[in-house]
Amino acid sequence: MWMDPPDTLILNEYEAHVWRADLALDKYSQTTFLQLLSPEELTRARKFRFEKDRRTFIIARGILRSLIGKYLKINPAAISFHYSRFGKPGILDNNCLRFNISHSENMVLCAFAKKFDIGVDVEFINPDIEVKDIAANFFSVNEIRNLIALPANQQTLGFFNCWTRKEAFIKAVGEGLSFPLDKFEVSLKPGEPAKLLSTDWEPNAVSKWSMYAMTPNENFVGSLAIESAVHEIKFWDYDIRPESVT
């Protein structure tokens, strides 16, 4: 699924690109990526209490900037972002390239599309969390029922399938945590396709949105949501060695 990218990036209209980066691979990247960040991003980085979280933010934002720079053929440090009232980022003076980013532990995913809203989420599969308790607070009635119906050894994966699909969808919609997670339903059974099954607010929403499952690495679950039926999704590995940034 995950491939080395071509030298020249071409993103077609009915295509999505998802990039994977393992932050554990290069402990020297932080200094290089710092050079790409804006003053506002540097201020945000300094506010993190723990060095691990600060490093993740710096490298993830640097990766995002370097990729946008490659798609738009501009200096990554010159990119300016704007934010919706719910905090969804966009590129200032460019409404064509849409993107989203997610990270969990050492894994970062960046997703890109043209003109269509897109959301991505990745989560480390923590086997120790109480999936039924969390589901009871956030999932729809049918999702809770479907989760409980799974064999015990599939419930953790089923939970993270559901969680990442919901997160990817609300990130694509762009309304953040104000969006009620229990007002729409997604598939969750391991081995079945990722799908938006229903929403409480728009009967036609299911036909407008596509969902895709991915495995970024062992012990991680990823999901993609896009407001279009894309013809192809390409999965690229990001080389985060310093020389790859320029």
Rank of each mutant, 00 (worst) to 15 (best):
F184N: 09
I144Q: 15
E123I: 13
R55E: 08
T199N: 04
W19M: 05
H17P: 08
S223V: 07
A45Q: 08
E130Q: 12
G62W: 12
R61N: 14
A168V: 02
S198W: 14
A113F: 09
D22I: 04
D237L: 15
V221I: 15
A111Q: 01
L9Q: 07
N12R: 13
E40G: 09
G90E: 14
L150W: 07
E167D: 12
D128P: 04
K52L: 12
K27R: 08
R20A: 06
E175Y: 11
V141Q: 11
I134N: 02
F81C: 02
P180N: 05
F112K: 08
I10H: 12
E167L: 07
S228W: 00
E105A: 13
E13M: 09
P193Q: 10
I170V: 15
F57P: 09
P76T: 05
M211D: 07
E243A: 12
G158E: 03
F33E: 01
R55N: 13
R44L: 11
F159T: 06
F99R: 03
L150Q: 07
K171D: 01
V206I: 13
A136H: 12
A113C: 13
H231I: 09
M107V: 06
F99P: 06
L92W: 08
G119V: 11
E185W: 00
F138T: 08
G87R: 10
N75G: 05
K70P: 04
F124C: 11
D53M: 03
A225W: 05
H103I: 10
P6E: 08
R54W: 03
F138E: 03
Y71P: 08
D117A: 14
L9K: 06
V245D: 01
K73I: 11
G90K: 13
K183D: 11
D200S: 15
E130Y: 03
N75D: 15
S80L: 14
V221A: 09
I59R: 02
K189N: 10
R54P: 03
N142I: 06
E167V: 05
E185H: 04
K70T: 00
S187I: 00
K70A: 09
A149H: 02
Y83W: 10
K27M: 02
I58V: 15
V173Q: 12
E232Y: 02
N12L: 11
K234D: 01
A24M: 04
S187K: 02
N142Y: 09
K171V: 02
D239T: 04
N142V: 01
F138V: 12
A172K: 10
L92M: 13
R55V: 01
G158H: 07
V108G: 08
N153I: 01
I170E: 00
T164V: 02
V131F: 10
A45N: 09
C162I: 08
F235Y: 15
P193W: 05
N204V: 08
R165Y: 09
Y71M: 09
I240F: 01
V122D: 06
L150C: 11
